[in-house]
Amino acid sequence: MSALKIKKGASSHSAYDLRDPNAEVIGSHTLAVMVDNEAGVLARVIGLFSGRGYNIESLTVAEVDHEGHRSRITVVTTGTAAVIEQIKAQLGRLVPVHEVHDLTVEGPSVERELALFKVAGSGEKRVEALRLADIFRANVVDSTLESFVFEITGTPEKIDAFAELMRPLGLVDVARTGVAALARGA
């Protein structure tokens, strides 16, 4: 893994080649699903995951093509190779789904998440929070005499790490967007 913690596509063999030596290994995959932005499409995708017992670690959705009414759903899920293949095939057969990409295996990709952290405190702790925020390149988007709201973007791991550091310094509330991801290169 690189410094950015981009998961390199370990393999990109055929969708059906499930006799992988890692077949029983549970891995995390980031899927990009292009859908028609029609009523109920998100319910359809979520219903598929709950109905068939798949995990959702993170989910983001927004219309990315206003003229074509296309939305991009980014979903981070976990499962064995066989389960991930099944998830992709099940997503692929939903009528409003146009494309399903497994960014984790299709090649290098970048992943980013945005989070807001409210940290309350005074004195040493307040100074330390501000110092750490600077190291993590988090911005202060709101401040009172007793609190800050930090905005941070990065990989989910980076945001997790920031959360760990803020906890003893008076972390009150967190809002995270979930992962947005794109394949690298042209």
Binding site: A15, Y16, R19, A82, Q86
Partner: peptide, 15 residues
């Protein structure tokens, strides 16, 4: 005709 039926319960050699 349904790709999600293939390799769902039984691994096959020629899908």
């Amino acid at each position: 005709i349904d790709p999600s039926s293939i390799n769902k319960v039984i691994h096959v050699d020629i899908p």
